[in-house]
Design a protein around this nucleic acid. Structure first.
Length: 910
RNA sequence: GCGGGUGUGUUGAAAUUGGUAGACAAGCCAGACUUAGGAUCUGGUGCCUCACGGCGUAUGGGUUCGAGUCCCUUCACCCGCACCA
């Protein structure tokens, strides 16, 4: 029987679906393992060969864990709300629900062909009302909670209200609270709620007609669509992610994530420990204390001016009448600029003097106060003390505006540039003189605190997440405005479903839902923004644990069994978005006791990106004649992308090329050795470069098992690499070879013969290797080991069932269809999934010749291979060399020298 | 600028973690077989040299009996952050 992959794969895929082979159920008798893929956004283009890379890796791991006796939860769903579907809807007038449904169906059929072991009964889309009910539910919980810094966790807002009523809290006294109107109380509480509505400077994207979160903007352009983004003050829903900054940072250490990803999150959270210091200022005859933040309290003696952010409220108050016109012009100018323009201008120094002066709290000196864009309103206090000698930005500013520069560190030459390093001895610094910089920082902090000039302060860069979008295709907020006061819907009203509307486009910042008829609750208007893309993906991993539960996000039983994701596989692009929001969301639910784990993703593996490998043909200018790669330099040619699907090993299929496009129907060719060789380049995989390889086509011509094996054989999972169909024949050949261990045409080869030692050795070496490799995600080397083992067993003519049966189990994570077929042929009724991983017996693999120092029984043994025809003199030379080496091992005394003539030299030392 | 990472044949990559560098594949070359194929099988293939032999893991140095692996220098590339005080 030949290996008919089409028949076999269809057969087993149908069987797995019918028998629900991969159904996961809480089974207290077994340890659990939760393997999750980052679910895809179902775009119209379908999957290309790069998408399944991570899915295959995690599927292999899932199957391996099942064999190892774990109850494995391995689900899949769709992140279906979001911009592209809506943009597409605007262009075509089709409802996003319709295109989403179509795209999901396409994704599903593509995924099914690859033979994943998902429990599809747990699948959902984030745009299903039964799912987004729980997104809305969590939002209401966040609305009804505040972050209590004393307990360092989220608590019900009622506890805060109780504080207001009794002893007061922050600047809210019981009297003030009692006197406040409903509206005022709502405004006060908004300053504390985890989900709150607030005026803030947001990233407004005119091209998309909506606001965006920081991680959705890159280089001043929207990540989706690449439209320019500008800063605008707007009232928006926000999530108080910043309250969790410290915890998000601290618990990173406990996670099994790559260092680079953790580092990215650390940078994004951006903890910086410094000092908040109060500077008195003189504006005319008024005094106005302003607070600044610095990490270099040691440099206060070198402060020669101060700078305010243009957006700072202090600017108006500190501007003198003489400077008013100039300052206003500057502020207006910088406000007009988009984020992108401001980034582009970071090298040009601009600024304007306010006319006011500050007083250096340590020296009592008068220093001018300026306004400049290089100070950001959103970080620290929006005001800084400038130390030009030891900060390059302050230095550039001082040089431009001729402000004094006082060096504070011995030997630092600040005539050409600032000295930013935190090292050296302090000078010109009063009581700090002579101290080392690091010492001085601490001493200065102590001094400032002791003299009531300020206090130690930890700042974070992490901002609250802007949570509303002026768009249609997202979760509606479960909020209505009762006499203008934002009020959550009762939980019994959830889900609040998206209304039908006629046009999906937002206009002039007006959200599409504002045009929805009857978008009210009990006669009150409902919130018309919708939630952003990351809302639905923030807690989806919890829902897979208990996807059909209509009364809870996840039941306590399911949560306690599955706990958190043990292995999460996905791309790095979510480092500062989804992976921060999910952690925040989970910690919030943890604070309230809805989940039992503080962190959602224990171990994270980032799969690399698959790039495309484009092919080119070369057309002689002005003709319809194409020359092969090696001859193109003889002519003036144009390089043209050609569809990689009609090129095999860089050789063009000329017939297919003629049919590809009508204009090439009568193309002529100049060949090399009868073949047309194409040029190639590594580029992003995209339609326009004709380098997209569809996994369906690979499944058609090679089969899913070959695709799975090849994607893993390509290299380490974490690495980015170009797709090159060239090498696929190698793994395909291997699978055929594997099959031929069992079947020779119609003849079944497996016998009950006793296994020979060499056969067992080959098998057990493989078991050991596979176990180790899969745990480390080194699938490529496991496949190599397979190729070697199968080669050995073929050469040995192995037919023993004792050897071949475990071999089928070993291949099953990689090539499940073939494994099932062979497993059945071996007489098993149950799926190979339940076979159990073969037990590794190391003693069977022990080498009978050792080539490196090996210690055992307190002795160390050296061996070295000798060429078969080595002369006595050569043997002697080897012995001498080994004796040299042996001196440095053990106590150096040589016990035995064994020379196997023509084979090895063997020295045993004590 | 700051942070993280990577540099090994023609190509994808291995290397028992300090112990025969290039496993396993791809490509190429030669051969076998033939229902002439993008099939199967065999052999060869780091570089220099007719050879003996020598040289080889980006660069230069160091530690070590022994370095792709550890330490320092320089260079190149990739990724992230970026006026964060």
């Amino acid at each position: 029987m030949d290996y008919d992959f089409k028949k076999i794969e269809a057969k087993w895929q149908a069987k797995w679906a019918a028998e629900k082979t991969y159904k996961a159920a809480e089974d207290p008798s077994k340890p659990k393992y939760y393997v999750l893929d980052m679910f895809p956004y179902p775009s119209g283009a379908g999957l290309h060969v790069g998408h399944p890379l991570g899915y295959i890796a995690s599927d292999i791991y899932s199957r391996y864990k099942r064999l190892k006796g774990f109850e494995v939860l391995h689900p899949m769903g769709y992140d279906a709300f979001g911009l592209p579907a809506e943009q597409y809807a605007i262009q075509t007038g089709q409802h996003p629900e319709k295109t989403t449904t179509e795209n999901v169906a396409r994704y599903r059929s593509q995924l099914d062909r690859i033979g994943f072991s998902y429990d599809w009964d747990r699948s959902f889309r984030t745009c299903d009302p039964s799912y987004y009910k729980w997104t809305q539910w969590a939002f209401i919980k966040m609305f009804k909670c505040w972050y209590d810094p004393a307990m360092d966790k989220a608590r019900p807002i009622n506890e805060l209200i109780a504080k207001f009523e009794t002893e007061g809290y922050d600047d809210v006294t019981p009297e003030a609270w009692a006197a406040a109107s409903e509206q005022e109380r709502s405004d006060i509480l908004m300053r504390y709620r985890i989900a709150y509505q607030g005026e803030t400077s947001v990233n407004w994207c005119e091209g998309l007609g909506t606001v965006l979160a920081n991680d959705e903007v890159k280089d001043g352009l929207s990540v989706r669509g690449g439209f320019p983004v500008e800063q605008r003050k707007m009232k928006q829903w926000q999530l108080r992610v910043s309250a969790y900054a410290g915890r998000l940072l601290d618990s990173l250490d406990s996670l099994d994530w790559s260092d680079s990803l953790k580092e990215m999150q650390r940078n994004w959270i951006g903890k910086s420990e410094g000092t908040e210091m109060v500077f008195d200022t003189v504006c005319g005859d008024r005094h106005l204390p302003i607070t600044i933040f610095t990490t270099r309290a040691d440099t206060v003696f070198g402060v020669t001016f101060m700078v305010l952010a243009p957006e700072s409220e202090l600017v108006d108050q500190l501007t003198t009448p003489e400077q008013k016109a100039a300052v206003e012009a500057y502020v207006k100018e910088s406000r007009k600029k988009t984020e992108r323009e401001r980034i582009a201008e970071t090298k040009t120094v601009t600024g304007v003097f306010t006319g006011s002066y500050g007083i250096n709290p340590l020296t009592g000196e008068k220093i001018p106060i300026w306004v400049s864009q290089y100070v950001l309103a959103g970080y620290g206090t929006g005001a800084i003390m400038a130390v030009p000698a030891h900060d390059s930005r302050d230095y550039a500013f001082a040089k431009k505006f001729n402000l004094p520069i006082i060096p504070l560190i011995e030997g630092a030459d600040v005539s050409e540039q600032s000295f930013d390093a935190k090292e050296g001895k302090m000078i010109n610094s009063g009581f700090l003189n002579g101290m080392d910089v690091k010492e001085a920082i601490e001493a200065a902090k102590d001094y400032v605190e002791a003299h009531g000039l300020g206090r130690r302060k930890t700042n974070y860069r992490l901002r609250d997440a802007v949570f509303s979008r002026q768009r249609y295709w997202g979760e509606p907020f479960p909020i209505y405005y009762k006499d203008g006061i934002p009020t959550p819907l009762p939980e019994s009203e959830l889900p609040l479903e998206l209304p039908e509307i006629s046009s999906f486009k937002s206009q002039n910042g007006e959200a599409p839902l504002e045009r929805a008829l009857g978008w009210t609750y009990k006669g009150y208007p409902l919130e018309t923004s919708t939630m952003p893309g990351f809302a639905g993906s923030s807690a989806y991993y919890l829902r897979y644990m208990d996807p059909h539960n209509d009364s809870e996000l996840v039941s306590a039983d399911a949560d306690r069994y599955w706990r958190s994701v043990d292995l999460y596989v996905g791309g790095t692009e979510h480092a500062t978005g989804h992976l921060i929001y999910s952690r925040f969301w989970n910690k919030f639910l943890f604070d309230l006791g809805y989940v039992c784990e503080d962190e959602p993703f224990r171990k994270l593996v980032n799969q690399g990106m698959i790039q495309g490998r484009s092919n080119f043909v070369y057309r002689i200018v002005g003709t319809n004649k194409f020359v092969s790669l090696g001859l193109k330099d003889k002519y003036e040619t144009t390089e043209i992308h050609v569809d990689v699907n009609i090129v095999y090993n860089d050789k063009l299929d000329i017939e297919a090329f003629r049919k590809w496009r009508p204009e090439y129907a009568d193309a002529e060719f100049e060949l090399e050795n009868g073949e047309y060789i194409c040029g190639w380049a590594i580029e992003k995989m995209s339609k326009s470069m004709y380098n997209v390889v569809n996994p369906d086509l690979i499944c058609d011509s090679y089969g899913a098992d070959t695709l799975r094996l090849y994607e893993m054989f390509l290299g380490p999972v974490e690495q980015s690499k170009p797709w090159d169909t060239k090498g696929i024949d190698g793994v395909n050949r291997f699978l055929k070879k594997f099959w031929r261990l069992f079947w020779d045409r119609e003849k079944w080869l497996v016998t009950d013969a006793a296994p020979r030692p060499e056969e067992l050795k080959a098998l057990h070496r493989l078991i050991g290797k596979e176990q180790e490799d899969i745990e480390n995600f080194s699938y490529n080397t496991t496949i190599s080991a397979f190729m070697i083992a199968v080669g050995e067993l073929t050469d040995l003519g192995c037919t023993s069932r004792t050897v071949l049966e475990p071999l089928v189990v070993l291949i099953s994570p990689f090539a499940p269809h073939m494994a099932e077929e062979l497993w059945e042929a071996l007489g098993h009724k149950e799926s190979v999934t339940r076979a159990g991983f073969p037990v590794y017996d190391e003693s069977l693999t022990v080498e009978n010749s050792v080539k490196y120092p090996v210690s055992f029984n307190g002795k160390t043994r050296f061996m070295v291979d000798m060429p078969a025809n080595a002369s006595p003199a050569e043997v002697e030379a080897h012995v001498r060399a080994l004796e040299q080496t042996a001196k440095y091992v053990g106590d150096g005394s040589i016990l035995k020298v064994i020379v196997v003539p023509g084979r090895i030299v063997n020295i045993v030392v004590k």
